[in-house]
């Protein structure tokens, strides 16, 4: 990898200051960024590690019953500590990558990168979560803006994400056999005021909501409610591992399975 300076601030304020330098880049758990650096796909002047900032780590419940997770919290911690509050979210976190990756990779890092095959974006979007940064709050529907693109400004840091807890939820991930990222995955969350369905891994535009399914499932939260629906293959990812038609098909299959599993 290219040479860079490495700083390890202990507060959000110091991290934001460090990120103000030209070509500085934040380092979460590094599980995606470090391989990219090895391939020399990025050349930051300074890498600002967020690994020593205690204030952005942890899982708790707020007064509204939302699960609040610090941006620097690892997937393994979410899998353990969110299980009692939001089992579907914890289960999703417990299947990202592999155990060693889950011990380093973080919620904030995943969301900031917004890989089109990542798991967290589906959970955040389906849960209608709020992404909180050092400067503002961003609704999930506004946050994701296409493959590897988000609403984050330069130097803006995800400090926390607040997840409303649905009445029922489930995440179904069909893995790409090599990377074990999602070939296609669906997060279904049923709230009192309706159902949200978020799909990752499938679209060239990154994570998206399948609104037709949401409407049908809001009327009847059963797999059968999807019977007449289909997802257009247009805009779906076409690669070695699946055609657009295959991915479109998987969206429907996995949504049905998620509904059945959520009960």
């Amino acid at each position: 990898m290219y040479a860079f300076d490495f700083v390890r601030p202990t507060s959000v304020a110091d991290a934001v200051a460090a990120l103000g330098e030209a070509d500085a880049q934040a380092l979460g758990g590094g599980q995606t960024l470090i391989p990219a650096l090895k391939q020399r796909l990025a050349s930051p002047s300074t890498l600002v590690s967020l690994g020593a900032i205690a204030e952005i780590r942890g899982v708790c419940l707020d007064d509204d019953g939302r699960v609040c997770i610090g941006g620097g919290t690892t997937h393994a911690t979410v899998a353990r500590q969110a299980a009692a509050h939001y089992p579907a979210l914890a289960a999703m976190a417990g299947r990202i990558g592999d155990p060693a990756v889950r011990n380093r990779g973080t919620l904030g890092g995943s969301l900031a990168n917004n890989d089109p095959s990542a798991c967290y974006p589906a959970a955040v979007l389906a849960s209608n979560a709020t992404v909180i940064t050092n400067t503002r709050r961003i609704a999930a529907d506004d946050y994701f803006q296409g493959m590897f693109t988000t609403a984050l400004e330069e130097g803006e840091l995800i400090t926390e994400v607040r997840f409303p807890v649905p009445q029922a939820a489930n995440y179904q991930k069909f893995v790409q056999p090599a990377s074990r990222f999602a070939l296609t995955a669906v997060f279904v969350a049923r709230f009192a005021d309706g159902v949200r369905v978020a799909v990752t891994g499938a679209s060239e535009e990154g994570v998206f909501r399948w609104t037709e399914a949401e409407a049908a499932l809001s009327d009847s939260f059963t797999p059968g409610a999807l019977a007449a629906l289909s997802v257009p293959a247009d805009g779906m990812i076409d690669d070695l591992h699946g055609t657009p038609e295959y991915r479109a098909h998987l969206v429907r299959v996995l949504t049905g399975r998620a509904v059945a599993a959520a009960g």
Binding site: G30, P35, K38, Q39, A76, D98, P99, A100, N103, R104
Partner: peptide, 23 residues
């Protein structure tokens, strides 16, 4: 070099970690 093979796994503070994927 893509953090998949796991030949480099060590424990950092008691937790399995890919030593090729942490500074």
């Amino acid at each position: 070099d893509t953090a998949q093979c796991g030949a480099c796994v060590v424990h950092v503070d008691g937790r399995a970690t890919k030593a090729c994927n942490v500074f």
